[in-house]
Structures are given as structure tokens and as C-alpha cells.
Design a protein around this nucleic acid. Structure first.
Lengths: 188, 188
DNA sequence: CGCATTTCTTAACCTAGATTAAGGAGCTGC
DNA sequence: GCAGCTCCTTAATCTAGGTTAAGAAATGCG
């Protein structure tokens, strides 16, 4: 049940069996049905989530009422609204399951205790977030450095399985254009 | 010289005087003249930098040969190319001073030793990067959720001093449109 | 299995922002 | 102080992608 998370942690830091057991005692898992929500706009984000299985999307509602996806989260990814988590402000984002999803829940109210007891996890999360910082830079390059059509082709070549896995209208939203435009690209 | 950095760290973790002295012994400062570079495209990024004074921009060269800014870094910000730092691959970005800049240099080759000796810094950086993750989500909302003109007005109201501080053509690049379009917005 | 809903495609028309060109204002360096 | 460079503005024209509408295909549920 927690094996994928422990394996992921092991890539960065070596937990002793005692530390692993202790960590697991603070965690729980949650299953989210397709189309169900991990976080709804207006809620205070209560936890960080590690994706064991499935795919989630994080989106907000634009002024025009459309759903603008800013990230997908698949297996071995951490997902949350970190601003809401830290400040207890209501979130402006929605995190929804695109397919049946299973996550490990790392509740906010246990996080400090866990870090106190297992300081190695500070390092683990520092490294995880450092990759997030790198990915943010890359996404900037991706969005600004390529036309919409170029972004689609790049993404399709880099992650063909993923492209098959999500609805086209969601992919279009994430890539920054409309479903109609994506259809036009694909028809060329 | 290092007081702003130590003050920034103190917001997140309490270092003992010994830890602070030890940390400082691993650091150095660097002054970068206006228009000079902290990192050039093609270099392996050698350090993380904390901005003591001044402003830097991180950009890449687009296919059209234009400079596309993905971030500015002002006082109390950490800046680097985290992908290059971690992987030793040549960076695809350039980090350049917009005005005279002074930074604290946290060299890659001392980082592990520093974290070993001062584990509290793992927490400090975890918290710093967690804010970076939150900022990345916000930037997604900002870029996708507003028109170019709305982005300019929002930014101008949120950070008027900053808008005065950087050349218009750089601001336009960061906000995702051309200098001519920015002139048009301002003329309305 | 049928029907309702969701997803995708197509195309005509529209527009936010890009491109191009030209010139003025401000700044910098000698 | 002036020449050259950098920055900014203006406007005509163009285009990448948006909007709107309609309908087909796929999916899901009872």
C-alpha cells in the first residue's frame, strides 16, 4: 500500500525500518473515484497527496467560466495547493480525479510532528520541491518558447501514452489553447 | 554582509550563533555589474544565489532569437537553474543583472557538507521551495486566467515600484507579450 | 441495448496580440 | 557636448488561435 511512496523516498534518502514504520503510522490512503475531488475551490487545503495510482488534474475557473488546467499529477507525484496549505486561505484551485485514483494523504496537522521525528524527510521534500522549481522553469520555456502547435507535437512525442490517457479537451487546456484548435492541429 | 540572508533564514528556522557562523564560513558574496551575467546559457550552473541587493532576470532565447524572460529575482530571493545544478547539464537559461547586484553564493560543491553540518537548512530550503511551488501555481493562474492587458494592470497595481524599476521591454517579455503591445496598453 | 451525455471534429468568422517600419526621447560613453 | 546606442511610441497590416455553431462519434448508465 505504501511501498511506492517508500520506494520514492528511498531514491533520495535512506530511511531506517523504524523511521519507515513511524512515517507510515502517520499516513493514510484515500481512494478518489473518477470525477470526484481531492480539493475543491474555496476549501482550505488540508494535506499533501502522493499519487499511488491514477491521474489528477489541478485547475481553476477562468473569468470566462472555462476550466484552465495548470497541472496533471500521475503516479509518484506529490500534489497539493501549497499556498493554501501554508496560509490556511481557501484555495483558488480544484484538484479532481480524471480516473480512479489512490493517494497517500500526508495531513497538514501531522506534518510538523513527522518532520520533528524524521528530519530526513525535510531533505526528501527539499529535493522534491527543488525538482518542482526546475519543472516550473521548464514550463516557462515550454509555454513561451513554442507555438501552440509545437507544444502539442513536443508533448505527443515526449509522452504519447499520457496523451492517449487524458481527454483531448483537458490536454488542450493544459497546453494553453482550445479543443477546437487541437482538433485542427491533429487534422493537419 | 550576510545579515539579510541570516534574517531571511531566521523567518523559517532558528540557527544558533555557532550554526550561523559555520554557515557563513561556507559562503561568499559576488558583485555583478549591470548587464553582466551570473549564469550564461551553456554553462553548468555552479551555485544557488541569494540576492542581497539589486535585480536579475532569467531568460532564454526563443526560436525567433528574442529574449524570453521567465523570472525576475530581487532582494531576498534565491535564484539558480535548479535542473542544471542537480544534473550538471549545461543550462538553457541565462541569468543577467538588470542593475548592480550583490548576491550570496552557495556553491554546489559545499552544499552537501553544509546540509550535513546544519540540517536545519534542509528545512529552510524545503520551506523556500514550497513557496516556489505555490508561486508556480499562481503564475499558471496569472498567465492563463488573464488577458495580456489584465496581466499588465494587475502587475502594475501589485508592484508599481517594480514596474518603474525595469525596462518596459523586459516587463513585456515577462508578462508574455511584445513591447509594442505594452505601449499600446499604456496609451489607452 | 438504447438513450443521454460527453467528447471530438469541422468550418466560417473574429480578434488579441505580433510584425514591421519609422521616428522620437532618453541615456551612455568618449 | 555630441554621437551612438538603447528604450519607447505609434500605426498599418498580418496571423495564431478564439469563438460560435452544428453535427458526428464515443462513452456511460439504467
Amino acid at each position: 500500500m505504501y511501498a511506492p511512496l517508500l520506494a520514492h523516498i528511498a531514491r533520495y534518502v535512506a530511511l531506517t525500518p523504524e523511521e519507515a514504520t513511524l512515517l507510515v503510522s502517520y499516513l493514510r490512503t484515500q481512494t478518489v473515484a473518477r470525477k470526484d475531488f481531492l480539493l475543491r475551490e474555496g476549501q482550505v487545503c488540508p494535506a499533501s497527496y502522493f499519487v499511488l495510482r491514477g491521474c489528477l488534474r489541478t485547475y481553476f475557473i477562468s473569468d470566462k467560466g472555462t476550466e484552465q488546467i495548470i497541472q496533471f499529477s500521475i503516479e509518484n507525484w506529490w500534489v497539493s495547493d501549497y499556498a493554501s496549505l501554508a496560509t490556511h486561505m481557501p484555495s483558488q484551485y480544484t484538484i479532481q480525479a480524471i480516473e480512479l485514483v489512490e493517494v497517500v494523504v500526508f495531513d497538514k496537522h501531522v506534518q510538523e510532528e513527522v518532520f520533528d521525528h524524521i528530519p530526513k524527510l525535510e531533505r526528501y521534500f527539499r529535493l522534491v520541491f527543488q525538482r518542482v522549481a526546475a519543472a516550473a522553469m521548464f514550463r516557462g520555456k515550454f509555454l513561451f518558447g513554442m507555438s501552440g502547435e509545437a507544444r502539442y507535437h513536443y508533448f505527443n512525442e515526449a509522452l504519447p501514452g499520457f496523451v492517449q490517457r487524458v481527454p483531448q479537451y483537458m490536454l488542450a487546456s493544459y497546453l494553453g489553447f482550445t479543443p477546437e484548435f487541437l482538433s485542427k492541429i491533429r487534422a493537419r
